[in-house]
Amino acid sequence: MRHLLSAGDLTLDEATLVLDTAKELAQVGGRSVKKLPTLRGRTVVNLFYEDSTRTRISFEAAAKRMSADVINFSAKGSSVSKGESLKDTALTLQAMGADGVVIRHSASGAAHRLAEWVDGAVVNAGDGTHEHPTQALLDAYTIRERMGRLDGLRVAVVGDIRHSRVARSNVLLLNTLGAEVTLVAPPTLLPVSVRTWPCSVSYDLDEVLPKSDVVMMLRVQAERMNAAFFPTAREYSRRYGLDGDRFARMPDHAIVMHPGPMIRGMEISAEVADSPRSTIVEQVANGVSVRMAVLYLLLSGSGSGTGN
């Protein structure tokens, strides 16, 4: 594994290795000194073209807990805002000797392009409407922690599938890990070729909920409403929101997930979000462990360690 660009690039063995490594590294978070020397002397650049404080600080915490030097490069107020191209930025990072680049970008495929232009490892931290593989890994990790396994679990992913990088990565990774995914959304928010994806599809949340072990709610952006993907926020919420009544129809063991940031009252009600069966806060904590594992596996093997 040289880069992490797509969740689909991971074999079952590789994905399992990331989750197992994350489990070991999670112990560090419980210590009084939350630090390992593993990546000392390595430089990780967080190259963020989109505002995403939570993902950036998650990667930053992950890199720092393993003693890497972290450079945060935000597009705003940098050479990028003066019109520098991604390629020129890549060549600059290359010249500075970045061992790893974590990139968040609004353009699908930006991480793939970057990987052609730098020698270091590239981690896709979300590219447009394409993928967000570390989110899928932390979701898988969270499910495995709560449920004890992934193989054979029934996972419903609900919301704006069409524009969701989280959904794309989750479908690929959960399929690799043996879970059975059902996508639930109004037809307007599903890709036209979704029937070719390795998952089931339903337009009816009420029909899917009783048969789900995990329900993953996705954020629905307000601008989708203006583009006529659905008539009103109220109607969306009525048909696809997870409220207390629907929550009660889920099996007792089933959990509720959300990648955040969530819109309470829209896709998820407050009582559901704050329920003990909601994993939303755990997902954030697990995000650091999983990102530590990814950086460790990509950067510790080769490259310019201390004194090199």
């Binding site: 699908s108 495929g109 590219d127 447009g128 409407t129 394409h130 993928e131 990088r165 794309r168 890709p191 036209v192 070729s193 979704v194 070719t196 994806w197």
Partner: peptide, 18 residues
């Protein structure tokens, strides 16, 4: 629109040109 709308555009997350 960025590319032909279909299996590939859906996978790549690029807006489709039907």
């Amino acid at each position: 629109a960025q590319m032909n709308e279909g299996v590939v555009s859906d996978r790549l997350g690029l807006a489709g040109w039907p």
